[in-house]
């Protein structure tokens, strides 16, 4: 079958999923797409330079020149919010991606090998569950310096055990099905079975978990930026904007914190709804 035909098939399948998932899922997907486009197309979408300081018009009210006003240094809020999408989304994406990758690897390996390897590895992973992600991130910033990299790595390591546990259960279930036994009898190698057969069948769960981790990471990273340890000025980032906007709130100019905080909330909620929709679909799709 040609790849074109399969692509058409999967598109129509995708639209069928969308219809079955209901309007909250569709709305959340649209919101997420908008946010992503916002970040990707920032150079073209942002009306002004987000870092252009204009001390003459700090905390300006919304006007035709500054649609949402300006922040404490006279920078255009809209532009900063649009550019902020980049770092605000990139961090959680890296965390979720790394945690998912590591977690899946651990899950598939332990589910396949079982025996002592499984017991030892799972115990190790379980002990890691005891480390609170945020504290680990703060610790790593203290050790390795501020910026995006240290907290992202720390959070990825902290989240991996959650991912690994859930995925391992699903992988174990899948592995116990007769079709895996049939492939084993056929002499197919474990790696191939795990990657080409087990993983695709637990993919909906993996995606749903990743989406959930994305949401958690977004909140955690925003908190880290809020504490001044993540993304450093002058880079626009929603978390740090909420933090920096504190002084503005006290002076009666809540726009920066409100809008940045609002975007964080909307994105996290949209991701959660999306994750639920995928998880719901995978639950329905079970035989």
């Amino acid at each position: 079958m040609s790849t074109f035909a399969t692509r058409i098939q999967s598109l129509s399948r995708a639209s069928r999923y969308a219809r079955r998932a209901g309007w909250p899922a569709i709305v959340s997907v649209c919101i997420l797409l908008l946010v992503v486009i916002m970040g990707l197309a920032a150079p073209w979408l942002a009306p002004q330079n987000p870092n252009e300081v204009d001390l003459g018009s700090i905390y300006a009210s919304p006007s035709r020149q500054h649609w949402l006003g300006t922040d404490g240094l006279g920078r255009d809020l809209v532009s900063r919010l649009i550019w902020g999408a980049r770092t605000s989304l990139l961090g959680p994406l890296l965390v979720a991606g790394a945690a998912a990758f590591l977690g899946s690897a651990v899950a598939l390996a332990t589910a396949w090998r079982r025996g002592r390897f499984d017991t030892v590895t799972t115990s190790l992973v379980d002990t890691m569950l005891g480390f609170p992600g945020l504290l680990l991130a703060i610790l790593s910033v203290a050790l390795f310096g501020k910026g995006l990299l240290a907290p992202v790595v720390a959070l990825a390591i902290a989240y991996m055990p959650y991912f690994a546990r859930v995925t391992r259960s699903a992988a174990l279930r899948e592995r116990s099905l007769p079709y895996v036994t049939a492939l084993t009898i056929q002499g197919m190698g474990g790696l191939r079975i795990a990657l080409r057969h087990i993983l695709p069948n637990i993919l909906p769960l993996v995606l749903a978990q990743s989406a959930m981790l994305f949401a958690y990471a977004m909140v955690d990273l925003a908190a880290i930026s809020f504490l001044g340890m993540g993304v450093q000025p002058p880079t626009a980032d929603w978390g740090s904007m909420v933090a920096v906007g504190q002084s503005g709130v006290l002076q009666g100019h809540p726009m920066q914190s409100l809008t940045a905080g609002g975007l964080i909330v909307v994105t996290v909620v949209a991701v959660n709804i999306f994750a639920e929709a995928i998880a719901g679909r995978s639950a329905r799709g079970q035989h």
Binding site: L177, Y179, A182, I185, Q186, G187, N201
Partner: peptide, 20 residues
């Protein structure tokens, strides 16, 4: 196992979980 696969094969009971 691959070599042995060409000697003896198996068909399982449950049609609903014995295929990917």
């Amino acid at each position: 196992r691959r070599q042995q696969a060409r000697e003896i094969q198996m068909v399982f009971q449950d049609p609903y979980s014995s295929l990917d």
